[in-house]
Design a protein around this nucleic acid. Structure first.
Length: 290
DNA sequence: ATCGGACACCGGAGGC
DNA sequence: TGCCTCCGGTGTCCG
């Protein structure tokens, strides 16, 4: 499950590999062509495989950046800027290779869905096992309104203030804190793994109502989320389930997670508990988190 | 205006 | 072995 640190890892390896290259052609898998022909929105959003390929042909990648868990390919054609927005969903991955056979792992190679053939002969390959990812070509962020309502980047100086003011609204005050911090309009890029970890590290029960937590503790929680995300970026992300950077490499943050996926609390040894919050499985220590 | 809930997009893991 | 159920990030739609 790629969260912000994993997407950051992808972008850091993708940007130098992709910038300056021009797209010659796009190949979409038969699986996606079939889904799209059944009027499904599998991976390619708001365009048919033909439209998608036709629009991208001849575009040059001028930069690759990250916004929350989205990858932004900045593109240019005939002096006009475009934006290809890529979300990895549950199991998406990008690879820069010369041929698809170079995608090392079977589980990704079997699920290659979009191939960008570059003018220099190389390939940028998008593989997605569960097909929850998305590729959306637009001209600017404003063309897709949800991109405008995302919370500030968590390391932006306005992020803490934004988080605290959202916590005070009736809507979020009544929600469990874990649901609040995993909402992308409240904090960008904090998914189940890092939410679980930050709550454990600050001793906050994931089911506690947001409005029943002091401002001081909320500030501490936000600071801890920043720390966990930074630590995870440093560690190259968590290689839980299907995360890989473009070189097929995985990070080692999962070894440093103290609560996510644990049977026992590393603090007191008690058996961890799990509950469903906002439809998501949440792990916590019943003794250490209140 | 806002919110909650259902649904959509899927393969794989785990239970039986 | 094979069938069934559950899981999950995010957006949209409906009441």
């Amino acid at each position: 499950m790629p969260e912000l640190p994993e997407v950051e890892g992808v972008v850091r390896s993708l940007a130098p590999a992709a910038t300056g290259r021009t797209i010659r052609d796009i190949k979409v898998s038969d699986t996606i062509i079939r889904s799209k022909s059944e009027a499904k929105e599998a991976i390619l959003k708001n365009s048919s495989p033909e439209e998608f390929a036709g629009q991208l042909r001849g575009m040059t990648i001028t930069n690759v950046t990250r916004r929350s868990k989205y990858i932004y390919f900045h593109l240019e054609k005939d002096g006009e800027p475009y934006l290809l927005v890529s979300h990895l969903g549950m199991s998406g991955a990008w690879f820069a290779v010369r041929e698809t056979g170079e995608v090392a792992e079977d589980k990704f190679r079997r699920h290659i869905h979009v191939i960008f053939a570059m003018e220099d002969g190389g390939l940028l390959v998008y593989a997605d096992i569960r097909r929850f990812g998305e590729l959306r070509l637009i001209r600017e962020e404003a063309d897709h309104p949800p991109l405008l309502t995302m919370a500030p980047e968590p390391f932006d100086e306005t992020a803490a203030g934004h988080f605290l003011s959202m916590c005070k609204t009736p809507k979020y005050a009544g929600k469990p804190i874990k649901e609040t911090i995993m909402d992308g309009k409240v904090i960008s890029g904090c998914g189940n793994i890092y939410a679980t970890e930050a709550l454990f590290r600050t001793g906050i029960h994931p089911g506690r109502k947001t409005g029943r937590i002091s401002m001081l503790r909320l500030e501490g929680l936000f600071h801890e989320i920043q720390k966990v995300l930074a630590e995870a970026i440093e560690a190259g992300g968590s290689s839980i389930s299907d995360y890989r950077n473009i070189n097929g490499e995985a990070g080692n943050m999962q070894e440093r997670l103290r609560m996510y996926g644990r049977k026992n609390c590393p603090g007191c040894g008690a058996e961890t508990k799990r509950m469903t919050i906002g439809g998501r499985t949440s792990v916590y220590c019943p003794k250490c988190q209140h």
